[in-house]
Design a protein around this nucleic acid. Sequence first.
DNA 1: GTTGATACGTTATAGTATACCGACTATGCG
DNA 2: CGCATAGTCGGTATACTATAACGTATCAAC
Lengths: 158, 158
Amino acid sequence: MTSQAFETHDHHSCIADGVAAAAQICNERSLQFTPTRQRVLEILLSEHKAMGAYEILDVLRAEGLGSQPPVAYRALDFLTRHGLAHRIERLNAFIACSHLDNPHAPVFLICRSCNRVVEAESDPGKGEIGRAARQAGFVIERAVREAEGLCPDCAEAA
Amino acid sequence: MTSQAFETHDHHSCIADGVAAAAQICNERSLQFTPTRQRVLEILLSEHKAMGAYEILDVLRAEGLGSQPPVAYRALDFLTRHGLAHRIERLNAFIACSHLDNPHAPVFLICRSCNRVVEAESDPGKGEIGRAARQAGFVIERAVREAEGLCPDCAEAA
DNA sequence: GTTGATACGTTATAGTATACCGACTATGCG
DNA sequence: CGCATAGTCGGTATACTATAACGTATCAAC
């Protein structure tokens, strides 16, 4: 398991790299990486916090890319369906995937103070959920794993 | 970790026992187990599926216990705040706690076919989430762990 | 050029949740 | 007892989140 820490980094290249990687993936899989879809991914990449669909829609609207909820939800459906972004159930919000390189079962660490969200990665079959499922004879298709708390910076400040 | 399996059981006593246990806990902690709160817990106990707040509200309304959303949400806030019920983030729904005896970090197994939900139990500090958090220096306050898939019965039928 | 699949733009509506107000009740304390 | 405080309640109004449904446009395959 790897974990991108709560640290500062080169944000500009982080957006460019993310879009480039997504474009390549869409190309490989013959998916249409349309302007709206690309723009929504860029918007998500520009934050390390999760964004609500309507928050994204506000940006799209200001740019003339569409003004009604389905515009945002359709793009988000596409991105999440293909693993380019993830939905954070706890927040009813979305975040760009930060592990595009390989298939994974994400784990999210959500700071309730600064609202940053970091994505870690691990095997869903292992760990507590997998154990509980095996014991009950349950077949897992999707796992939601989200921890809410304080990131290192906010924990220290408190 | 223990896990209540997807099995049939004596539902009648299961409701009565759950209410009695909750009443005792409220008594010990000097909490007010008011009629509405008790009734909401009973409603939740009467199903092994998660129920939406408005679904619960429909029942309350039919019984003259209140007809507006805050009535249901207030009772659910109370129940979840004190561990008598849990919120299922994935479903925007609620379910009675089935491990009232001890403090715990629940794991939920959600069958997408029959909609039953089973609560397993485990230590939140261990497992994948705990490992990811320690690695990032993150302080966990609450963990959401929900698996969606097929229960044994539905998996066999499919 | 017709067909089928996918995406888009829009309207309308469904579903989930909370802020706030005013009244009432339980509890603790002088 | 009399009062202060905190907790609860019922209700109105509103905010936030999400999807159904319809017609159009685009593009590739046959």
